[in-house]
Simulated scan of single mutants.
Amino acid sequence: MTDAPITDPKALRALSHPFRWKLLQLLTEEGPQTATQCSAALGESVASCSYHLNMLSKYGFVAEVEGPGRQKPWRIVPKRQSISSEGLEGEAAMAAEAASMAYLDQEFERMRTRLRQYDHLPEEWRQVVGTEGTVKFVTAEEALGLVEELRTLFDKYDERRLNPELRPEGAKAVRFFLSHTVAPE
């Protein structure tokens, strides 16, 4: 599942709000949620959750689940979020940078929070929690190949993310955050 990078400055600005990344995380890991359920899970008011969900919806990141009843749950729109300032100028480039920084701030906060909860995890789950860092000397082509191999490896589990019926018993949401950067000249 590869989507073109987000280039609309307004959509990028929508992603520059840290709380919106928390909503995206919640919907990704917990499935469809109403604004009331988001409020209870994230400790934000229902009105605030509703406002931010509507903003995410406006740019196609979430959508309401169709069905009966007044309170409609929101669901994540299945697509890979790709944010890059490459080829963008001015306002769009600044919006891409702001969205990227909000995303990274959210990821690092999530890692810190979950690492602090390590002692409260069952033993079998403690084995999969941690961080790793490594440096490899590779060409640009080799680095791109490694990234593609990792994406292919993770892609084989994508259907489980969107379809809970496909998850084996005992499956939990495990967050993998990969970063690949190049040392400056």
Rank of each mutant, 00 (worst) to 15 (best):
A4F: 04
P5W: 01
P5Q: 06
D8T: 01
P9S: 04
P9M: 08
P9G: 00
P9Q: 00
K10W: 01
A11H: 02
L15M: 14
Q25G: 11
L27C: 02
L27P: 00
P32Y: 07
P32G: 05
P32T: 07
A35P: 01
A35N: 05
A35F: 01
T36L: 11
S39L: 02
S39K: 02
A41Y: 00
L42C: 07
L42G: 05
S45A: 03
S45K: 08
V46K: 04
A47C: 09
A47E: 13
S50P: 00
L53F: 02
N54T: 10
N54K: 11
M55N: 06
M55C: 08
L56F: 02
L56H: 00
S57C: 08
K58W: 05
Y59I: 06
Y59E: 00
G60P: 01
V62P: 02
A63S: 10
A63V: 02
E66P: 05
E66Y: 03
G67S: 09
G67N: 06
G69K: 01
Q71D: 14
Q71R: 13
K72E: 00
P73R: 03
W74P: 00
I76F: 14
I76K: 06
S82W: 07
I83P: 02
E86V: 02
L88M: 00
A92P: 01
A93Q: 09
A96V: 02
A98G: 04
A102T: 06
Q106C: 12
E109M: 12
R110H: 14
R110E: 14
M111Q: 08
R114C: 09
L115Q: 05
L115A: 09
R116Y: 08
Y118S: 09
L121E: 10
L121W: 02
P122L: 14
W125L: 15
Q127C: 06
Q127I: 01
V128M: 11
T131D: 00
E132M: 05
E132P: 05
E132Y: 00
T134E: 06
K136G: 07
K136L: 14
F137A: 10
T139D: 12
T139C: 03
E141L: 08
A143C: 10
L144C: 03
L144Q: 13
L144G: 03
G145E: 10
G145I: 04
T152A: 13
T152K: 07
L153R: 09
L153I: 08
L153Y: 13
F154G: 01
D155Y: 03
K156I: 14
K156D: 10
K156G: 05
K156T: 14
E165V: 13
E165H: 12
L166V: 11
R167L: 15
R167S: 12
P168Y: 08
E169M: 12
K172R: 15
K172W: 13
V174F: 12
R175I: 14
L178P: 05
S179A: 13
T181M: 13
A183E: 13
A183L: 13
